Simulated assay, not measured.
Amino acid sequence: MKLLKTLTLLVVIAIVAANHDQKVEIEQLTAPVEHGEGPFWYDKEQALYWVDISLKDVWRLHPESGNITKCHIDEGEVTVIIPLEEDNTFAVGVGSDLKLLKWDGRNGSEITLSQIVSFGPLPEGGRLNDGKVDSKGRLWIGTIGPEVNDEVELERADLYQVGCNGGSIEATVHVSNVSVSNGIAWSADGAIMYYVDSPTKKIDAFDFEAESGTISNRRTVFDMVPYNISGVPDGMTIDADDNLWIALYGGEGVMVVQPHLERLIKVHTISGAPRVTSVAWGGPNLDILYITTSSRGGGPGGQVYKMTNTGARGNPANIFVMPKCNKE
């Protein structure tokens, strides 16, 4: 029986390795920005949205037409953008607030912003960071502690879920003493939530209960340190085979991990982009990996890339459902 299990594991590894040994192609799509982050493929529009945190811009790329547009938000650093069902309507992280953005995707068009919920007061210099939506439309979004010269004060951030408390929308802490809350992804069956707190250089997992939106049983499923991988884990997505694709900030690459085997599959190098920030599956068949990068602090980077011919594909990203809170 032990031999059979070993042979089965070797076959699985061989199949996965074969799928990822294809000659991937990586292509630059955009000019540099300062701190590109938060890519979201909006399947309904067949368009990619992302943000420039430092310059407070929201960007949109429509690959079929080649059109690239942006809008500017004056109120604070823009950290994440996620659509709602209503056309031209998005949830955006702005400083320490989650706001509702109305934008038709055109250059120079008028935008409107309204408040959804505040996460403040955060530690001075802290802000919202990465966020993802679960299968029930709930937004999970984390913060980052105060930064000085690209160094973050540790354990001064949290991971929140946006929901109802009585008759009002509220952000509730689900994981505390975080340093840089980053990538979030769910397994295909929805039973596991994967999570990145960047300075730990680890990928953690929680048991996830979709109906109640609760997490439990935190454990580490991958540790970068034994593999001597450069950089720290940043944004993250998952493919249809439940492999994690993780941006390496300071590592000039994207690593692919089998979390259920706690195994590294491959690190794809993104030449000329040492600060890779996040990844998202997109395209008509969800088999294009879009990659955001940063040039913050000087040096190369800041472009959006696409990676094709990976042998993998993703699933449609969930959109945010505004909580309907019953007022007594």
Rank of each mutant, 00 (worst) to 15 (best):
T6N: 13
I13P: 04
I15M: 12
V16F: 08
A18E: 06
D21E: 12
E25P: 01
V33L: 12
V33S: 14
E34Y: 11
H35F: 13
P39Q: 12
D43V: 08
V51S: 03
D52N: 14
D52Y: 12
R60S: 04
H62A: 15
P63H: 09
P63N: 05
E64G: 09
E64L: 08
S65M: 09
N67P: 01
K70A: 06
K70F: 15
C71L: 12
D74M: 09
E77Q: 14
V80S: 09
P83L: 11
P83C: 08
E85S: 15
E85Q: 15
E86M: 12
F90W: 07
D97F: 03
K99L: 06
K102W: 10
D104E: 09
G105L: 09
L113C: 07
V117N: 03
G126V: 06
L128N: 04
N129Q: 07
N129H: 00
D130M: 02
G131W: 01
V133E: 10
V133S: 14
V133Y: 14
T143H: 04
G145N: 05
P146C: 03
V148K: 10
V148Q: 07
V152W: 00
V162C: 07
E170I: 11
T172R: 15
V175F: 08
V175M: 07
S179N: 05
A185W: 00
Y194N: 01
V196T: 09
D197I: 00
I203A: 09
A205F: 08
F206K: 06
D207H: 06
S212G: 12
I215F: 03
S216C: 01
F222T: 01
F222K: 04
D223H: 07
D223W: 02
M224R: 02
N228W: 05
S230K: 15
S230C: 11
P233I: 08
T237R: 02
W245Q: 02
M255C: 09
V256D: 08
V256W: 12
V256P: 10
V257D: 01
E262S: 15
H268L: 15
G272E: 08
G272W: 05
A273Q: 12
P274T: 02
P274S: 03
R275I: 05
V276R: 06
V279W: 04
W281S: 03
D287T: 01
S295V: 07
G297I: 00
Q303G: 01
Y305T: 10
G314C: 05
N315S: 14
I319E: 15
F320Y: 15
F320V: 01
V321K: 15
V321A: 12
C325R: 07
K327L: 14
E328F: 14
